[in-house]
């Protein structure tokens, strides 16, 4: 295995981790399987495309082609994607959580509503912007580094570092902040958390905004490698869901390990000449199904068992 392959695997794993951890946190704390995570992804990508398109001439006029200008563009792109993702989270909160969180069949109904949101927003994007792919400005620039004889593209390195930073920030927030403590309490035992005075309604909003922002971040980072299109969210959604499942829904470390495993698996399967890129999805799903049949609660279940 050479270094390029590892970097590629880490790149995939970083994106998957952003999606899967969001889905996992949301499921275990609030109890929503968020099927509109893919829609959040696509909408944030489009919002970033619109905002950067509007800001680009302005920045170019004021700063020219300096380092400051490109930093500013990168900041705008990431910020717009993050903010749009968080706003999508607010919409999900208003539609799929607030009206029904104390009604019967909450989990299935929330799943259905988020599914409806997903369909509606994908079709809405298709209707407004058409099926064409849109390229976002490359915030990490074009180019490669030479590390021990292998070339690493800037966008790959940037994605890995960016995802790691965001994941670190999220985990730190969960670990050290008051709100994070509440979220973790809800993840462990929602009922017990409610008894000790943690309001579900109040805590769900930041969780939904956070997971939305994670999807937005994933969109901003993935758009460095591929284009943005209305249906761009489907594959990340399916991958994110299955990886969250592989990690044992609700376990953050499980989701992280699962994302890395799947990233490496895909990179390796893609690199084997006989199989090639066409069988990547196939192999991933087979792997996940095999793991789930052997360990029905995924990697997280494995971790819990060893802890006990």
């Amino acid at each position: 295995m050479d270094l390029g392959l590892i970097v590629y695997a880490l790149n995939l794993g970083a994106i998957y981790a952003l999606m899967a951890v969001g889905i996992s946190i949301l499921w275990s704390s609030v109890g929503i399987i968020n099927m509109s995570h893919g829609a959040t992804f696509a909408v944030s990508g489009y919002a970033a495309w619109l905002v950067t398109g509007a800001v680009k001439p302005l920045v170019a006029a004021t700063f020219g082609k300096t380092v400051l200008a490109s930093t500013l563009m990168a900041g705008t792109l990431v910020a717009s994607a993050l903010i749009t993702g968080a706003l999508c989270g607010v919409i999900i909160y208003l539609l799929a959580f607030l009206p029904i969180h104390d009604k019967p069949n909450f989990q299935v109904r929330a799943l259905i509503i988020t599914l409806g949101l997903n369909i509606a927003s994908v079709q809405g994007l298709l209707w407004m912007f058409g099926p064409r792919n849109r390229g976002l400005p490359k915030i990490f620039g074009f180019g490669r580094w030479e590390v021990w004889g292998t070339k690493i593209r800037f966008d790959q390195a940037g994605t890995i570092v960016g995802a790691a930073v965001i994941m670190g920030l999220t985990l730190a927030w969960l670990r050290y902040s008051r709100r994070g403590l509440e979220v973790r309490a809800m993840m462990q035992n929602a009922e017990g958390a409610a008894y000790s005075g943690i309001s579900r309604q109040v805590t769900a909003l930041p969780v939904l905004m956070l997971t939305g922002a994670l999807a937005g971040m994933a969109a901003a980072l993935l758009s460095q490698t591929i284009f943005v299109s209305p249906t761009a969210g489907v594959i990340p959604l399916v991958k994110g869901l299955t990886i969250a499942l592989l990690g044992g829904l609700g376990s953050v470390p499980g989701a992280l390990i699962g994302a890395l495993l799947v990233g490496f698996l895909e990179a390796i399967v893609g690199a084997i000449p006989y199989l090639g890129q066409r069988y990547v999805l196939f192999a991933t799903f087979l792997f996940i199904i095999a793991v789930l049949i052997i360990r029905p609660r995924g990697i997280g279940g494995l971790l819990d068992d060893t802890r006990e």
Partner: peptide, 21 residues
């Protein structure tokens, strides 16, 4: 109608799910 009809389906789905058990 084009794509809006799917949006219509999705909206019906959301409204029905929010209000009907």
């Amino acid at each position: 109608l084009g794509p809006p009809r799917i949006i219509l389906v999705a909206v019906i789905m959301i409204v029905v799910t929010i209000f009907a058990r």
